[in-house]
Design a protein around this nucleic acid. Structure first.
Lengths: 345, 345
DNA sequence: CTGTTAGCGCGTTCAG
DNA sequence: CTGAACGCGCTAACAG
């Protein structure tokens, strides 16, 4: 019946209350199961903990154990449905492993990503997941690689979601293959004259999707006129602006591939504003299959990526012990044809 | 030039390298500014820290200081754009305050919310933000209140986003007032016969929006036939199903208000599938003004909530010292009329 | 099976 | 202005 009205209840308080040592209380409450405690003592400890409403101090445990169950997750922009779906997958899987997720949204600036990584390192995370396309800037990639190496050496598991640009575990998205399959499918549907809203030049994801699309056209003996590839932001507004520019320079294409869904939606709006009837006047395809966009009209042909699964796969990767060589987990992309790309047979 | 290839670099290592005591190193690297250190020693410490790539151990600091800079954020579903926008706002504001965000997605189950809250308590967070509508279940509310009280007593600041159902700081969303203004506006536009897709019965947000809408109609001397209020899930599919059911029972309304945008989008799809021309055959309005849905057709009349601002406001609230009485921060809702509710004048 | 005790890394008195 | 030493709460030897 010891009273401690000040501050928080500690393990020692629980031990006193139960009339056992802190070691025993620790074994009962936070033990790893390897140690046995006599049933009656166990009950007393449990009762005392409940009575005092004890909650183990995680920082103290981290300190004593030399490790935490924190998983750091860095995304480009959590408000973007692409990343929020991935985050949902990571968190769902983390829950199963008893891990907690510390999240950072870097909102695009790669520099900030490095800062966050440094902050995260201070937390002594058990693992770190970086979600988001890498850029083609080798200097940036090397600085990132250095930071990740340090984390790795400090015992944290690290994984990337996107491209395998560094020698660490990676969840690979089939950007290239997905776009290739899409191109072939569009050709099968009878489309012949294409344009691509290619996103930013330096973004690997955008580049891979463009390259895959071109490869798919080549499979069918077609090519993409250089003039019909337009670069812009990876966003809805980027899609709108890029489409508008293309329309201003007498576009010859009759089918537009936007390298992600949000751009495709922007493009559709631009086409509408320009008076182009859809889907008759122009076919449009996207990439990602963002759930929130399933109801746009015309319904969007796209390449589906199981984003929650991607996040979960990354978490599973970092929960496994480190392998000798980087593990790669490839996530399949699947073409989904909808109303925005009608067959022209 | 002491070498320590094993393990992580500690403050002691830095101190040795710089030829000073740990206390001095601590004052230089993590000091609160109240203590002065001679410039030359300071430089040596800084140089040593840089050379050894020192990173302060956050759990150890938490332990010594007795507090952390962790902010816990609980949302119903991070994949929902409503919550991911709020999360973006919280994270952006947290960055300014040097706080890190530990996030949980409870995916709807209120029970899980309590579990997460318990886990979070172990982290000794500086603050906790709960985003998401409360239910009308008083037992649940009381259990939540008890958990939050404990957190509060342990020194954590707590804030709610949504309804002011507990005596703690709250960011209030103008659900009722926004819906009321919307109803009046729709009446002004000439609409007379309404139906409401009201979401789940037990969800306060849904109830408030319904009640506000009814109040707005009453302002104009109109009423909502009881038969024209249909309950269902707060999701896209919920909107679809509810709309479909309404259509199956010879609906007399010519304007449908869905209590959130994703439901409205589902309703639009249901109307399309039922052969109703839009917006001519049926006016549709939503709530939230989800950015990702700005390009649906017909463009959606809705009530805008500045969601990122909401998240940021919550973070600012919990960063302020505790007030004697709960602080309330009201966020304005704004009616946005678009093509989905044409004027009937 | 249980209790005692030495740290984990750092902030912070308190002497010098 | 600097350094030695204590303690934060807990785990993991180790001794009993």
């Amino acid at each position: 019946m010891s009273k401690r009205s000040s501050g928080t209840v500690t393990l020692m308080d629980v031990a006193h209350e139960a009339g056992v040592s802190v070691a025993t209380a620790s074994r009962v409450l936070n033990g790893n199961g390897s140690r046995q405690v006599r049933p009656d003592l166990m009950d007393r400890v449990l009762a005392a903990a409940a009575a005092l409403d004890y909650s183990a101090n995680a920082p103290a445990q981290a300190m004593a154990r030399g490790r935490t169950n924190v998983v750091g997750l860095l995304v480009h922009d959590i408000a973007d449905p692409f990343f929020s779906s991935i985050a949902a997958g990571v968190m769902r899987a983390a829950e199963r492993h008893g891990s907690i997720v510390m999240m950072y949204s870097t909102t695009g600036r790669a520099e900030r990503e490095l800062d966050y990584l440094a902050t995260l390192r201070g937390q002594r995370p058990r693992a770190v997941i970086l979600a988001g396309s890498r850029t083609t800037d080798p200097a940036l990639r090397d600085r990132l690689g250095a930071q990740l190496r340090i984390l790795d050496e400090s015992g944290a598991r690290v994984a990337l979601i996107s491209q395998h640009v560094l020698p660490i575990d990676t969840v690979l998205l089939e950007n290239r293959e997905g776009a290739r399959l899409l191109a072939r499918r569009l050709v099968e549907l009878g489309h012949r004259r294409f344009a691509v809203l290619a996103g930013p030049r330096h973004l690997l994801t955008a580049r891979d999707r463009l390259a895959g699309f071109q490869a798919g056209l080549a499979d069918g003996g077609h090519t993409l006129p250089r003039a019909e590839v337009a670069y812009g932001d990876f966003t809805r507004d980027g899609g709108y602006a890029t489409m508008r520019d293309l329309l201003a320079h007498d576009l010859r294409a009759s089918c537009v591939f936007a390298v992600n869904d949000v751009m495709a939606v922007g493009a559709i709006s631009a086409l509408r504003d320009h008076g182009v009837p859809l889907p008759g006047g122009m076919a449009v395809a996207g990439f990602d299959d963002i759930v929130t966009l399933r109801d746009v009209t015309p319904s969007l042909t796209t390449v589906r990526l199981p984003l929650e699964e991607v996040g979960a796969a990354a978490l599973e990767l970092v929960m496994q012990p480190r392998a000798e060589r980087p593990r790669l987990r490839r996530i399949r992309a699947e073409v989904v044809v909808r109303a925005s790309t009608p067959a022209l047979c």
